[in-house]
Design a binder for these strands. Structure first.
Lengths: 241, 241
DNA sequence: CGACACCTTGAAGAGGTTCAAGAAATGTGG
DNA sequence: CCACATTTCTTGAACCTCTTCAAGGTGTCG
């Protein structure tokens, strides 16, 4: 076995328990067979490892199987911004298509495993399987809508609103994956949350403390228990124009 | 003529002077013919008119022919955020694909004309013409990268940096379209610029005044002449981590 | 020409940042 | 498995940027 972090055996979507999340495509038997062959390999990453980095030639999309990733954009003058957190069933790498190279870094925030989806193969198959074509378009459109909602958050919300929205979004996504609606373990640091939300880490920390003081949640380091989700909803929806 | 704002006569990309901007696709004669048939109609809009609005069923993308648009996301509690400004040759409407309905409003900021690109037709043709498929993917990927760069701007830049970046981006896009690199007429209000940049209109106004004081540009209402573009570059690239 | 929308500028105030110090958790090497 | 180094988190105080509120000016359109 030349490289223990790659496996090409029995790599197939057909019997993957994440299929409903990452490839929810209605199709006939033949088509499903094509789709099952989308994946070229799986790959394991250690915490802190880069899945891809900006400037790197683009050739694959990646589906997260296990673990947790962040994507980070870096500007020419060294600023950087976390643009997303990605968990099981989500697809990363779409940024690379336009210039045939990645425009951000994708970093594993804990030990992780991903499926490699060669873009060329995906494009080929989606020409033959309309349902896959639709799915790919929707993936990209969803990313656009999500990013525009982040622009709304970053452009118009105050610190506590941002953090509340962030937490609600996280638990909602975790809930879809069968985890608790109220309890979660943050996979990222205060600084990473801050970068994502356009805040400094101290501000994030203070907001956590404030929410805890107000009895909205319990916070012990990265362990968070949401006691009053409606309070969070109210915070997010309170203000506005 | 039932509706003077729609025309379906001689609507064809083949001899459109904007083709290089909006459909720069390499293909053989047959394929180009397919692509030329992408457009179903053209439509004229008056200043202030909506091209589409959030919640509206999605069925078309739109290519801007003339005029200038903004797209605006509105949150449930009435906040809104300008997510983009769009000029000749640019495609809008990609947000609508994921949920079969638009998630933002597109508003003409001046009298405008657009080409209607039925999404179903586009999807069909791009299954037969790989170059079009690639083009569509790149369009969407470009939008993702652009939005993520806006997240960087909103999350990490100060007011003067944001405005400088905005102006440089604007003149650069206008320059590609054959207009001056230094002179421009803003099509949007201070408030709209502010919404886009996550600032209040007063802040935008103050920053314009500051740039004018510093001799970087002349500002007379919406007429802007950039005297020292390098100063703007320096402002954008100054800080960082 | 008048009404309305848009822009500018000042002064006061708030929210978030910066700087700093210490505490808690995590990981590492012996 | 423990001790130590490192990273991460919390909290306080001073500061700064941007916002808010207010008033007046400028431009535009019917």
């Amino acid at each position: 076995m030349p490289c223990p972090n790659f496996s090409t055996l029995k790599v197939n979507c057909s019997n993957c328990n994440l299929r409903d999340l990452c490839m929810p495509v209605e199709a006939d038997i033949d088509e499903l067979e094509s789709i099952a062959g989308l994946i070229s390999a799986r790959r394991k990453l250690k915490r802190g490892e880069l899945l891809y980095s900006h400037g790197e030639p683009f050739s694959n999309l990646y589906a997260v199987r296990t673990g947790f990733f962040k994507t980070v954009v870096t500007s020419s003058d060294g600023r950087d911004q976390v643009t997303g957190f990605h968990m099981a069933g989500e697809i990363v790498g779409l940024d690379g298509i336009v210039d045939d190279q990645h425009s951000c870094d994708a970093v594993a925030l804990e030990d992780a495993e991903i499926c490699v989806l060669p873009y060329a193969r995906m494009a080929d198959i989606s020409r033959k399987v309309p349902a896959l074509q639709t799915h790919v378009h929707k993936l990209m459109s969803r990313e656009i809508v999500r990013d525009q909602n982040m622009m709304l958050l970053l452009g118009s919300m105050r610190a506590e609103e941002r953090l509340a929205a962030f937490l609600l979004n996280l638990v909602q996504r975790l809930h879809v994956r069968g985890l608790s609606q109220s309890e979660l373990v943050l996979r990222m640091t205060r600084e990473e949350i801050g970068s994502y939300l356009g805040l400094k880490l101290e501000t994030v920390s203070r907001m956590f403390s404030r929410f805890a003081d107000e009895g909205i949640m319990e916070v012990r380091q990265r362990h968070v228990r949401i006691i009053d989700p409606e309070a969070l909803e109210r915070i997010v929806n309170q203000s506005g124009a």
